[in-house]
């Protein structure tokens, strides 16, 4: 049995203002990426990339996005991503850019990478803590996330925890 080979692009949406990430939804990202592809590669590129193209996941806290497309044309899609300057959502333009973190063959490898990446982020953010009390607070927040949801959702929750830390760390 032969399956269709896909590529999953794990991207990070970088915005200047963290709170504007809440405005985004999957549809907005979908149209933005599709528009960028047709802008950069014309009708031909848009047609090739639209085969099985989907936004699989969007985390509105951290701005992490999973994009899926066929293995044969993922470079077309990827080379169009740098040209995105803003995402339009609910009548508002959110200026942002896509930063591709990882490209994987399955969504599982991407998830594994994301967990590792987020733990790294947490360590980076912990440096910004000013006092020991703050650090303890962060540790407590992370622990509460992971203990609450054992099993499947554990990893996802972990991400959310990190997301909160990011916002909190910068403030």
């Amino acid at each position: 049995m032969v399956r269709y080979k896909s590529r999953y692009l794990l991207c990070e949406l970088c915005v200047s203002d963290q709170s504007s990430l809440q405005l985004l939804d999957e549809r907005a990202v979908f149209t933005a990426v599709k528009g960028a592809v047709s802008w950069a590669h014309g009708d031909y590129g848009a047609a090739l990339c639209s085969v099985s193209f989907a936004v699989k996941y969007l985390n509105a806290h951290t701005g992490v996005v999973f994009l899926r497309c066929r293995k044969s044309h993922y470079r077309l899609l990827w080379s169009a991503l740098p040209f995105i300057t803003s995402v339009e959502s609910r009548g508002q333009r959110v200026p942002c850019f896509f930063n591709c973190l990882h490209v994987g063959g399955t969504i599982r490898t991407c998830q594994k990478f994301l967990i590792r990446y987020n733990t790294q982020q947490l360590l980076r953010m912990l440096r910004h803590c000013h006092s020991e009390a703050e650090r303890l607070e962060v540790r407590k927040a992370v622990l509460s996330c992971s203990v609450k949801s054992l099993g499947k959702e554990e990893e996802e929750e972990d991400e959310d925890g990190c997301g909160d830390e990011e916002e909190w760390g910068e403030s």
């Binding site: 970088c14 915005v15 200047s16 950069a40 470079r75 990827w78 080379s79 991503l81 740098p82 300057t85 200026p95 942002c96 850019f97 896509f98 930063n99 591709c100 973190l101």
Partner: peptide
Amino acid sequence: KPLELRGPYDIANLGLL
């Protein structure tokens, strides 16, 4: 501006264009 920067891997891919 900070929003005009792109990630290094994206640029490596942009090089293909």
